[in-house]
Every structure is written in C-alpha cells, then in structure tokens.
C-alpha cells in the first residue's frame, strides 16, 4: 500500500490510509442500513413505492447519499427484499416428518401464516416492481422454492406414495393454498381478521392433505 502510494502519489490522495478506510467503510455500512430500514418503514407505513426524497428524510441522509450507496432504485429495492427475506428465514424451520399428521399441518400453517403476515405490507410493492425487477423476481422465486422444499419434506411420507404427476399437483395445490397472495386475498381483499384467515387457510391446506392421504392410503392398499 505504502509502496503504491509512493509510486502513484495522486492515487494516494484519493484513497486514504487503511485505518481511515475502515472507519469509512463502517460508516458507509451504517448509512446503507439506515437507508434500507427507512425504506422498509415507509413500505410498512403504506407507501408501495416510497419516494427517494421521503427515504432520505426518514433515514436522515441526503438524496445524493442514497445514490452513492445504491446505483438506482432497483438496487435499493433488491437490498430491501434481501433484508426482509433474511429477517424471515429463521421462522421457516424444517418440520419433522416423523411427527403426527395434524402436528405437521399445524407447524406448516404457523410458519406460513407468520411469514405471510409479516410480508403483507410488501405484497403490493412486490407485485408492482417484480415485473421490472429481475433481482426482486429472483428473490420471490427463491422464497417460493424454499417454501416448496419445507412443504415437501414435512409431508414426504404421504407424498412419496403418490404418483409423480399426482405428487406435483398436490404440492402445487398446497403451495397455492398457503401462498402469500392467498393470504393477501383473505386478509386484505376479503377483510378477514387474523383468526378467521388462519382458520380458512388451514381448512384449504388440510383439505388438500386429506385428499393426498386418502389417495396414498388407497394406493398402498
């Protein structure tokens, strides 16, 4: 580093010595975090597309600073999506497939409903930006694949006994019935409270599992 500084003194002016860089990096990381959290707060508050000027005000930074940290709003929204997904990942613990059927259903519903409820404020923002944001779309796909994996492993004993086509259809139906769009529909479009929406979603998912179980039993017999 010092050699380089000697060799190119001009660059030495632009890039500060190491300790200073670390302090800057730390500050930059904190500012970045503040911007992301401010955006999340605004979306939670009902702004599906927060304006940069509002994000700056909420974060206590300048609008110029936002674009120093993010190339464009697409990059900012992608970072927001990543932060939200990371905060929810711990909720999606694997479900032991050795547990009784009803307990696995309860565990799956608890997990799906908790995540769906936390994502409720982001539904409109995602629907709005997903078609134009490859990163956001990739994030949503990753989340769905994750939910699929959890569902498949939780009900592996029942699903294994089904034909391949029937198994895919059952998993597709389980995911659709517990999808956040379904939750959004129940909670927002049809105005059900948490309890009623939970009961309704459990009814749908349970009904699909009952069909699958009935089929797997008749297939085994």
């Amino acid at each position: 580093m010092s050699d380089a500084t000697v060799a190119t003194p001009r660059e030495g002016v632009a890039t500060a010595p190491r300790p200073k860089i670390d302090g800057r990096v730390l500050r930059a990381a904190r500012t970045r975090e503040r911007i992301i959290n401010a955006t999340i707060d605004l979306i939670r508050g009902g702004e599906s597309t927060p304006r940069v000027i509002d994000i700056a005000r909420t974060a206590g930074v300048s609008t110029r600073s936002i674009f120093q940290h993010f190339d464009d709003t697409e990059a900012l929204f992608a970072a927001v999506a990543q932060q939200v997904v990371e905060s929810l990942t711990p909720l999606a613990k694997p479900i032991d497939s050795a547990l009784p059927w009803e307990e696995r259903l309860d565990a799956l519903m608890r997990m799906r409903i908790e995540v769906n409820e936390a994502l409720l404020p982001f539904r409109r923002a995602v629907a709005l930006h997903q078609p134009r944001s490859p990163k956001l779309a990739a994030g949503v796909t990753a989340g769905r694949l994750f939910a699929r994996e959890r569902t498949e492993s939780a009900f592996a004993p029942e699903l294994m006994r089904l034909s391949e086509a029937e198994r895919k259809q059952t998993v597709d139906a389980l995911l659709a019935a517990s999808d956040w769009q379904m939750w959004f529909g129940l909670r927002m479009t049809y105005g059900l409270d948490l309890e009623a929406a939970s009961a309704t979603m459990r009814r749908m998912v349970g009904a699909i599992l009952t069909q699958a179980t009935a089929r797997s039993v008749s297939a085994a017999a």
Partner: peptide
C-alpha cells in the same frame, strides 16, 4: 370466503405468472 379467495382472479394470476403453472 375460502371459495372466493381461492377462485379470485389474482390467485389465477399468481399461479400463472408467479408459480409458472
């Protein structure tokens, strides 16, 4: 409510556009 939510046009959209069915 369950039937309406399940058969909602946005549910169709979700399956077709987002779940790729």
């Amino acid at each position: 409510d369950a039937l309406r939510a399940a058969l909602d046009w946005d549910m169709w959209m979700t399956m077709r556009r987002f779940h790729g069915l």
